[in-house]
């Protein structure tokens, strides 16, 4: 069955540029599978566009990239897209993955209270390291890949029809695999530096679900 994915990808600083580019493999996979992808990117990631599309298309999955805090996820230039003040019917039955800081603390439970099926996100800042000399070619940055590939696995697993708990689990396994690889093999200093942050992201990634 074809599914609909709504994705937001602001792009206005180094962190959002990395998320913007690293979301491309997910879009590619969804299109290859024949899923419908509504991609709100760059300057178009504003509240009006986001809420309008969300209400109009009723997606199955929502993949939010960008900065966030406990109550809010932001779009381009820090414009609030979704907050704990919103009461949206369009959240009903949605599965949400928010690749942003802290949103799983309050915004996640708020989305569940408004009918979302599941919310996967982070209860703490999502931290990643990167090589600034590659910041104009983020997809070529193998340091950032250590973080952004395991996080992509959340949404690619969902697109493959697996339940949210499984998506969370497979993503954490990929984080753990990277940690183990770095701990057990001879790696350059910059790669070893990643371990503490990979562990942090893995530990603070949560899958929130309404009790059935």
């Amino acid at each position: 069955m074809n599914q609909t994915l709504l994705i937001t990808r602001p792009n206005y600083d180094e962190a959002t540029t990395y998320l913007f580019h690293w979301s491309k493999p997910v879009i590619k996979l969804a299109i290859k599978k024949g899923d419908r992808v509504i991609d709100i990117a760059g300057k178009k990631v504003n509240r009006e566009e986001f809420i309008g599309r969300l209400k109009k298309i009723s997606p199955d999955f929502l993949f939010l990239n960008g900065h966030g805090n406990q109550t809010t996820i932001f779009g381009q230039d820090n414009e609030a897209l979704l907050t704990t003040k919103d009461k949206l019917k369009a959240l009903k039955k949605l599965i949400i993955y928010s690749r942003s800081c802290n949103c799983a603390s309050l915004l996640g439970p708020h989305c569940l209270n408004n009918g979302a099926k599941a919310f996967i996100g982070y209860k703490q800042p999502f931290i990643f390291i990167y090589n600034p000399s590659l910041s104009t070619h983020p997809l070529a940055d193998s340091l950032a890949e250590l973080f952004l590939n395991p996080s992509n696995i959340v949404i690619t697993t969902l697109l493959k029809g697996q339940p949210p708990e499984e998506a969370d689990k497979r993503s954490k396994k990929a984080f753990q695999k990277n940690i183990q690889k770095l701990l057990t093999s001879e790696t350059p200093k910059e790669y070893s530096a990643a371990i503490r942050f990979l562990f942090w992201d893995m530990k603070h990634q949560v899958c929130l679900k309404k009790e059935e």
Binding site: E14, I127, A193
Partner: peptide, 16 residues
């Protein structure tokens, strides 16, 4: 101090 000098750490809203 043991971190390499050629990397940046992105900590969400706080910056890089």
């Amino acid at each position: 101090k043991t971190l390499p000098s050629n990397i940046k750490v992105s900590i969400g809203n706080e910056g890089s």
